[in-house]
Nucleic acid binder design. Structure first.
Lengths: 227, 227
DNA sequence: TTCATAATTCGACGATAACCGAAGCATGGG
DNA sequence: CCCATGCTTCGGTTATCGTCGAATTATGAA
């Protein structure tokens, strides 16, 4: 009846709870083994295997063999973007997940969204960058100002990412499902989070998307971005 | 196990072929009755009714009663955006719809994407605007230049949309699934298409997303945007 | 080689949900 | 008042798919 790409085929891949859990776990950006994903999804290894095969066939996941493990990762940031969009639609409809664990507050404060910082601290960072005139905000579009370029140098970011030659956009706004405001994504967002790790301000909690700031690291973060 | 919005719940709504067809039909931006959507999806009125009820409960559709008809429309541009993203993932995986009708070439040339122009002419328009310096392109971010503001005035666009107060972004890039390049979305994209209709350069074909340019209208279009 | 772990394949069970026929409500017109 | 139209609800059938138990292959370690 209609021409065009087949939405239903890949949307049905995201429509299963087990597969959705796996993809959400992979939103952390790092590759996970089949066993880890099975545990995250709450299913046995057999079912996880079939699910992962389907996701790979659908082009949503890439696989890398390493020893007797198979590491799965999202096949690209476009996949992560669609997942974020779906999360946005889900909260708008008021359909939250029922089970809300003890880690929830920590997730709301600071978590990783594919490869950049999200949560309250994520939106605070973007707010600070805009307030200080380092990033220009024009509706939904973000761009790095000349002053912002100086700042990234001082902060220790590799200047190479400023080259517009790369396919990935430098600054990108990403709607935060917990704060319902935007935080900074794109190559710069990823580089800033990397630098925060390198400075020892924060670290990833294992098996979780939570970004845990040390007391001292949080102070530094506040000083740089919240003044 | 995990906190956060429930992706699977609404993704499963998009995962059914009948519902996906309905949503794709509504990407045209105009509201359709339950009967029309049933025909588009290729199912009977009964099944369409249950599908539409689910889509409405999921917050993806809004309904408006008018006489004994019920008009359905996408509940917002964010829904359309997620659908576009899914189309992008689908073509990347090579999963096109099998049946390709005779209208396919016309669809590739010019169609409406929710409320703005897409297809070859859509990307040509954005290309022209960028080449003439009316829109600044910075990676994935688009912004209207001062020269571009003058142009919109001359072209007959209501200056009211330039007010940044509105929630909707003015310029937005939207990945085109047929051309695999970006075209112009956002408030400006919608306003330009409205103006193209008003000038009589093109019109919507009934029961389709095709935008049909008149020979003279196409000439005007080429002159304005492709020089 | 032998054992343990990681992951896949096979087969069968069970539940969910899409589908349509038929009947039931509304709304609008003659 | 009666009929036609648009849409919804109900019941029952069918089929698809997620799930796990058991067995199989592959890799690494002892």
């Amino acid at each position: 009846m209609k021409a065009g790409p087949d939405i239903a085929l890949i949307a049905s891949l995201l429509g299963d709870p087990a597969r959705a859990n796996m993809l959400t776990a992979l939103m952390g950006g790092q590759a996970l083994t089949a066993g880890e994903l099975a545990a995250q999804a709450g299913v046995t290894a057999q079912t996880a295997s079939t699910h992962l095969a389907k996701l790979e066939a659908g082009g949503l996941l890439t696989v890398r063999r390493q020893g007797r493990h198979r590491y799965f990762a999202l096949s690209g940031s476009d996949v992560a973007q669609v997942l974020e969009g779906l999360m946005g639609l889900a909260i708008r409809a008021g359909h939250q997940r029922t089970r809300t664990g003890p880690k929830e507050p920590a997730l709301r404060q600071a978590r990783v969204c594919y490869d950049h910082l999200a949560g309250d601290l994520g939106v605070a960072m973007l707010d600070g960058l805009v307030r200080r005139g380092l990033i220009a905000e024009q509706g939904e579009n973000l761009s790095l100002t000349p002053a912002g370029q100086d700042f990234t140098m001082e902060f220790g970011i590799d200047p190479g990412i400023l080259a517009t030659s790369s396919r990935r956009p430098l600054c990108k706004s990403c709607l935060d499902w917990s704060a319902r405001r935007s935080h900074l994504a794109g190559a710069l967002g990823a580089a800033l989070l990397d630098r925060i790790y390198a400075l020892g301000w924060a670290r990833r909690l294992p098996d979780s998307r939570i970004v845990s700031f040390s007391p001292g690291g949080l102070k530094h973060f506040q000083r740089v971005f919240a003044t």
